[in-house]
Design a protein around this nucleic acid. Sequence first.
RNA 1: GGAGAGAUGUCCGAGCGGUUUAAGGAGCUGGUCUUGAAAACCAGUGACUCGCAAGAGCCGUGGGUUCGAAUCCCACUCUCUCCGCCA
Length: 423
Amino acid sequence: MLDIKLIRSNPDAVKAGMKKRNKNMDALVDEILEIDAKRREISSKSDTMKAEQNAASKQIPQMKKEGKSTDELMARMKELSDEVKECAAQLTDLEARQQEIIYSIPNVPHESVPAGADDSQNQEMRHFGDATKFEFEPQAHWDIGAKLGLFDPETAGKVTGARFHFYKGLGARLERSVINYFLNTHTSRGYTEILPPFLANTASMTGTGQLPKFAEDMYKVEGEDLYLIPTAEVPVTNMHRDEILTGADLPRKYCAYSACFRGEAGSAGRDTRGLIRQHQFNKVELVKFADPETSYQELEALTRDAEFVLQGLGLPYRVVTLCAGDLGFSSAKTYDIEVWMPSYGRYVEISSCSNFEDFQARRGAIRYKNDVKDKARLVHTLNGSGVAVGRTVAAILENYQNADGSVTIPEALRPYMGVDVIK
RNA sequence: GGAGAGAUGUCCGAGCGGUUUAAGGAGCUGGUCUUGAAAACCAGUGACUCGCAAGAGCCGUGGGUUCGAAUCCCACUCUCUCCGCCA
């Protein structure tokens, strides 16, 4: 969420930021300003009355001790008490409305984010390798997988439903190898490995911005305050919720494998075949808690760290800067890494690396101080896929397929796979 | 799942509905003493939120009773012990 003080002191910048996102939120911003002014007025009035109550509360026992009558004062106190309660009720309403609005306002895009309405206006920053060329007619990964017996969506349809997969044999092993390769690579480069719970509560979902706006996208456990996580970002970022970190420890760098669960995945009717769009998929996530001064350097480094594992696999990819209109709700700036997918004839998102600045940290009260005497400041949170596992497996199958239908295993994965070729 | 106990500041820990603006200790900071340190002694010391400020709020969380709640009532969460079940 945005800082109410920022909205108060510079509403035009917030409005402009929303317009850059292709959203006009002028009316909401104006409403929140109005509510905020009213809230502060009532709060101030209430505090003055409470001060009088506090003073009287000290007098009463004194007067009783001296045998004086407190009836008159009591009557006045009763009056005050009622007024304070009235103010409290009004404040509750105003705060609820203010919170509702502020939770619905997305982050202000960083100045370096290009303007643009949708993904067609994202800007390519760089690329690695080139679109894979074949001497034969390449197959889609779902056909390769079916022929080699690597996974089995039909059985998943029976057991669970559409958009789930059973991985089998070397298919399962390939998925697991990719996870291990990612984790080993990141941990050897300074990230601390986390294996988080795959469910999180309302407070955590709110902390990272999934709630309250995107409740319908998630799987909720019936009768419990628990949701299946859509990404490891949720549990890992919330590890430090309501904490004050030591400045010298920043940046804190974590990598985490988790299964990810997304209810929205099937809604569009897109990518119905294969591993690209599933209700459950595997992902290794990178999460950083950074000093605000250096968070954009950390974003560059995090993106490079995600790219590093794709380079290690020899998969062609490109990096794009999302334009403001394509930016996620909580993000101030995002780089997408897109891997070359022959069956699509285009690049497909495999990682999304974002700096949320203090947007999540404010919601979750994640702060730091360099010295005990300092005032606690909000950290900047960042995360990025490092990277999506299912899509990586799909990209490997497609980019490394051979004319005879076999698939060569990238060098880096062979120690994990124990075979050089799947045939 | 059942039974019991508990949750207070950085930590331990006291707290009868009203000078609690949370006792006392530890720790931390400064000082005295000392060649230096330890010990002893003296002094100081929560963090956070809102507010321009005065001030208000904060004793697990959320409600309630009351002129007044850390203290009483209700609900919830979490922790510990024991029992049951269990990978």
